[in-house]
Simulated assay, not measured.
Amino acid sequence: MSDHALQAAAEAVQKGDPERFAATMACAPAQRGPLWALYAANLEIARAPWASAEPMVAEMRLQWWVDAFDALAETGREPQHELGPALLPLRAQAPLISAIAEARRWDCWREPFEDEAALWAYLDQTSGNLIWAAASALGAAPGLEARARDFGAAAGLAALFSAVPQLEARGRLPLPDGRPETVARLAQEGLARIARARGGRDPALQAAFLPGYLAPSRLKRAAQDPSRVAEGQLDGSEFARRAALLRAVFWRI
């Protein structure tokens, strides 16, 4: 793995996704390289739909990533990108990353999700795939995939809740139904998925879960007071956020 590419990946995550960067720094040093590469690629994919006001242009940017990871999976060819050398060790996870890019096509357009099932499918294909890619890159056994996807979808919902004010300000409809009872129900389902995902001491799964260290508290607040979602009031103080990461590290999520 190129030291330059890995450094670029780490710096991109530190700047663009500080929660994941902090969580990755709490992992074992040997785990950080694959995670930085994966999270940096995820950042690039997540930004692509917002790179142009023209949905078709944004989709073309996503298609580049789909093609790049399809090629990595099929032939081992390095993506022609600054991150390329850092992504080579993720060949086995490339189909999952390609699927994330495919699912992000929804972000290029302004239509809302058809229903809650469509929302959960999107969360599984984005955050669920990301969490499972992280766990599998660190050596998690295939039998742990369901737990990884449960946690990933729930963490994705918590992140989406946090982004609701920003998304609505940009003319998007991030939820299929914004009524308080619906928000509370979604939050409760997210908490149920986290509960299913918990248990065991698999180090790969634990490391993959760490970036979601704020998900439980965000979902609890949304379930208790759904108005906090629209108001952007799901997070506590900086001290509380740091304490949540410490709890996740020492007691695991």
Rank of each mutant, 00 (worst) to 15 (best):
G84F: 06
S227P: 00
M1I: 08
H81F: 12
A243N: 03
D107Q: 12
Q31C: 14
K220W: 09
R47W: 08
P180V: 08
A223S: 07
P180R: 13
S227Y: 10
A133C: 11
A163L: 14
A46E: 06
V183F: 03
V57H: 09
D70F: 07
W36A: 04
G76E: 12
M60R: 06
R218N: 05
Q93D: 10
L246P: 01
L157I: 05
M1D: 08
A154N: 07
L88Q: 09
A10Q: 13
A37G: 13
L245P: 03
L210I: 07
A118C: 08
Q63K: 12
P165Q: 06
A40I: 01
V229K: 02
G16W: 09
K220Q: 15
A103N: 03
P180G: 12
R47F: 10
L138T: 02
S227C: 07
L38T: 07
A215D: 05
A12E: 11
F250W: 15
A146S: 14
A51V: 05
E116L: 05
A140P: 01
P142Y: 13
F21P: 00
A146N: 07
D115P: 02
A135G: 13
A26N: 09
A46Q: 02
R147Y: 04
S136T: 09
W65C: 03
L210M: 14
P34T: 05
P176M: 10
A101P: 02
E54V: 14
P142W: 12
A37D: 04
L191Q: 04
S52E: 12
Q125C: 12
V229P: 01
A51F: 00
L90M: 14
W36R: 00
A240K: 14
W120L: 10
L90W: 03
R104V: 04
R185T: 06
E44Y: 02
G128D: 09
G33H: 11
T24Y: 08
L96A: 12
R147H: 12
R61C: 07
G16N: 14
R91E: 15
G236M: 13
A184H: 03
R196I: 06
G156C: 06
Y39I: 00
